[in-house]
Write a protein that binds this DNA or RNA. Structure first.
Length: 761
DNA sequence: GTTCTAGAAC
DNA sequence: GTTCTAGAAC
């Protein structure tokens, strides 16, 4: 149908244009089958260049494929390049086969990972299960570095196939392509309206793949960034191994320092932290003794000013003199080791390379605030990508010595997504280097003054970030503390109607509940209301209640869905309750999906699920979060290897708003179904921190309650690898130690032990 | 939410 | 034959 006969006015050669079709797809995606089908019926002369078979039994090479393709084109034949071609670089040489006489197409077999895996497993099945497992690993690894082709790479046509029916269409299209015909140029099939399900999956995969991609490419980046810096700082670290070793050692040191740095109430890995390099001592040749005095002096000053914040002095080189000077002098001054630590490593890889989360990093900038110049400045601009340059330009055009500028880092920056850095503070120190313009000619009186100013500006900038976050936090906690009075003093809060329309009776019910500011009374009221039917298990009363509430509720709850509601209303009747307060009840999940899995239930009548939550419940949400966090931290004290996540199901099965507090091992016999997994590991699961933010901003939580989310393919929550079924996934997650995706590591979505040694990452 | 089970997938 | 999924009933 897309085949057009070329107009007869064109020249003979042009009519006989050959095509190179670069197939793009993982093992098992059906590339060879595609070629076979087309070649079986096509009237066009085709040659299939297959890297698997070109080596006559041995593994073929890319060069062999290129030579074979070129020779076929010479003979006027069209060519299928049958190899994975998943990344741009792999494809580039084949694209170069194009010429005015040769069109280059791509056919992308972008089928679900699960399908590719099961096919490749099948293919090697006769060689035993191990082979199959290996195939799965290979497919997963390849898919993780998948880059979909773009027309800009040099194709005249790209066909995307996202399911079997797309593949069939493409086969038909190419099969019908006779020697004198051409196909229209452009991209086809990327947005196939007939493949909604698949699109849904693709959308999700793209979203969750992003951080994985950042991490994996990060590994290759590491070399270049490291060597770049090594040149400048005559470091002993020569490669990723060096970094790993030194970072590991320092993390160990940091571990000691970090013990007890978390005071019960704060979220564990969430202490605002500034990582900063030594200012002016590298290229600007500031005296190291004097510089270290100033660093320690300024840190001491600001450590006391800033309560809940840490400073990390970072140097790339283990043998760095400035580092040992600072370490020694801060030790002499007895600076709180919880608040100030030194770290050997790459300041652009503190989290990914050293498991140290620093939300703010300082840059030893140049006055133009431009990339380049080597050292920390070059490394940070390079690691942060163009986003930092743009964001910097918006804030300031240049910097004078002694000054600093705070730049919020856009979330598009790899430093943000990979390392969790939210702000970069550029700071310019005094220049003592006679080789550089405007140097201070050994005037250390002025030099020291400017360097002090520089650190003051830097730390002040950091303090402003911390303060802005702290006031937000304090405001929240104050409101929690004043919960009762807030409720009784400002019933207006309760009248803000949210998305669901409340009937006047329901509003009245709510207001009455509020007016009785003594919450015991509030609960008692419910108890009385419930008393007659409690013994009767499932009965008409519950259903009557359902009906009554159905005016405000989007969902009718079956009798089996009432147990949490009952516990919330009458906790004293239930043995499995582990904490009760006026606002919440905490219970162990009856069917835990992980080693630790508990539920924080809201004790509000009519608050059945996330869609019922509005701005008037903000304090309640924060209380639930705090209680959940407290329990997570309690478990973490007992077992530091656990990692917790707190959140809500977009569309829960059980009535009564409940917050899941669940450890990320997912080691449980009760985790049986795909939907169990996906309900905790897809966007269906709404992180408590995000819900609070959304309710606070817009008064409603974003819901992702599409059923497709619960049936989409199974992916490891850490390495994002795909698995064909739940048992396989479970055996994988039992061993997977990959770091969590960056998106989970941000904003305190994951709750970790304070002194992680990386072994449980 | 779970359990049960038919039948698909392996 | 066994494993796994998914839909209905509860």
């Amino acid at each position: 149908m897309e085949v057009d006969a070329q107009s007869s006015t064109k020249g003979e050669e042009e009519k006989r244009k050959a095509i190179v079709v670069i197939l793009v797809g993982a093992p098992g995606s059906g590339k060879s089958t595609f070629c076979d089908h087309v070649m079986r019926v096509s009237t066009r002369p085709w040659v299939r260049v297959c890297q698997d078979t070109i080596g006559n039994g041995k593994a073929g090479t890319k060069t062999q494929c290129l030579a074979s393709a070129a020779s076929a084109l010479k003979d006027g034949k069209s060519v299928f390049i049958d190899r994975c071609n998943l990344d741009r670089e792999q494809r580039a040489d084949f694209v170069k086969l194009g010429s005015p006489q040769v069109d280059v197409h791509a056919v992308v077999l972008d089928l679900p990972a699960k399908l590719c895996i099961s096919r490749s497993v099948k293919r090697t099945g006769h060689e035993g299960n191990l082979q199959g497992g290996k195939a799965a690993a290979v497919v997963n690894r390849m898919l993780q570095k998948k880059e979909l082709p773009k027309l800009s790479e040099g194709y005249s046509r790209i066909t995307f196939c996202q399911n079997e029916s797309d593949v069939q269409t493409a086969i038909t299209t190419y099969s019908a392509l006779g020697p004198l015909l051409t196909l229209p140029s452009g991209c086809f099939g990327q947005k196939n309206p007939d493949a909604k399900i698949q699109l849904g999956i693709m959308k999700f995969l793209k979203k969750v793949d992003a951080p994985v991609k950042a991490v994996s490419t990060g590994h290759s980046l590491q070399d270049s960034v490291t060597t770049e810096i090594t040149k400048e700082n005559d470091s002993c670290c020569k490669g990723p191994e060096g970094i790993k070793a030194t970072a590991g050692k320092e993390v160990k040191e940091g571990e000691d320092l970090a013990v007890g740095s978390v005071d019960g109430t704060s979220s564990l890995n969430n202490v605002p932290t500034l990582a900063f390099p030594s200012i002016s001592t590298a290229d600007f040749q500031f005296d190291l003794e004097k510089a270290s005095d100033i660093i320690v002096e300024k840190v001491e000053e600001f450590v006391t000013k800033l309560g809940n914040a840490r400073f990390v002095f970072v140097d790339l080189s283990h043998g760095s003199k400035i580092l040992s000077l600072v370490r020694a002098k801060s030790g002499q001054k007895n600076i709180d080791t919880d608040k100030f630590l030194t770290f050997v490593g790459d300041i652009t890889r503190l989290y990914s390379g050293g498991r140290l989360h620093c939300n703010v990093i300082a840059n030893a900038a140049n006055w133009r605030l431009k990339p380049g110049g080597g050292g920390v400045n070059a490394a940070i601009f390079s690691a942060a990508g163009p986003a930092l340059e743009i964001a910097t330009k918006e804030r300031a055009g240049s910097l004078t010595p002694g000054k600093a500028v705070v730049v919020p880092l856009p979330s598009t920056s790899p430093l943000f997504s990979r390392e969790g850095v939210t702000h970069v503070i550029h700071v310019l120190g005094p220049n003592m280097n006679p080789q550089r313009p405007n140097f201070l000619n050994n005037d250390y009186i002025k030099g020291c003054k400017v360097l002090r100013e520089a650190y003051s500006s830097l730390f002040e900038g950091f303090a402003s970030i911390v303060r802005s976050q702290e006031t937000l936090y304090q405001k929240k906690t104050e409101r929690i503390e004043k919960h009762e009075s807030v409720l009784s003093e400002s019933p207006v809060d309760f009248e803000i109607s949210h998305t669901n329309q409340l009937s006047s009776t329901d509003q009245k019910v709510k207001r009455e509940a509020v007016d009785e500011s003594e919450k015991n009374k509030r609960c008692k009221g419910f108890q009385e209301e419930l008393r007659p039917n409690i013994s009767g298990a499932t009965d008409g009363k519950d259903n009557a209640k359902n009906e009554k509430n159905s005016r405000t509720m989007s969902k009718a709850w079956g009798p089996w869905a009432q147990s949490l509601y009952r516990i919330a209303m009458r906790p004293e009747k239930h043995d499995d309750v582990i904490e009760v307060s006026d606002d919440v009840v905490v219970v162990n999940d009856l069917y835990p999906k992980a080693k630790c899995h508990l539920l924080v239930l809201a004790r509000y009548e009519g608050l059945d699920q996330l869609p019922d939550v509005g701005k008037e419940h903000l304090q309640l949400l924060m209380t639930m979060h705090e209680v959940g966090l407290k329990w997570a931290e309690k478990f973490l004290n007992e077992d530091g290897t656990l990692v917790f996540r707190l959140g809500y199901h977009s569309a829960p099965s059980m009535r009564q708003l409940h917050l899941h507090v669940i450890s990320q091992d997912f080691n449980s016999k009760h985790l049986k179904h795909k939907k169990h997994w996906n309900s905790f590991n897809s966007p269906f699961f709404r992180d408590s921190v995000d819900v609070i933010e959304e309710i606070s901003n817009s008064g409603r939580a974003t819901l992702k309650d599409d059923d497709k989310l619960l049936s989409m393919e199974l992916r490891c929550h850490r390495c994002r690898s795909a698995h064909p079924n739940l048992p396989r996934l479970k055996s994988h997650i039992g061993n997977c130690r990959a770091p969590f995706p960056a998106s989970l590591l941000q904003n305190g979505r994951l709750v970790l032990a304070p002194n992680k040694d990386g072994s449980n990452q």
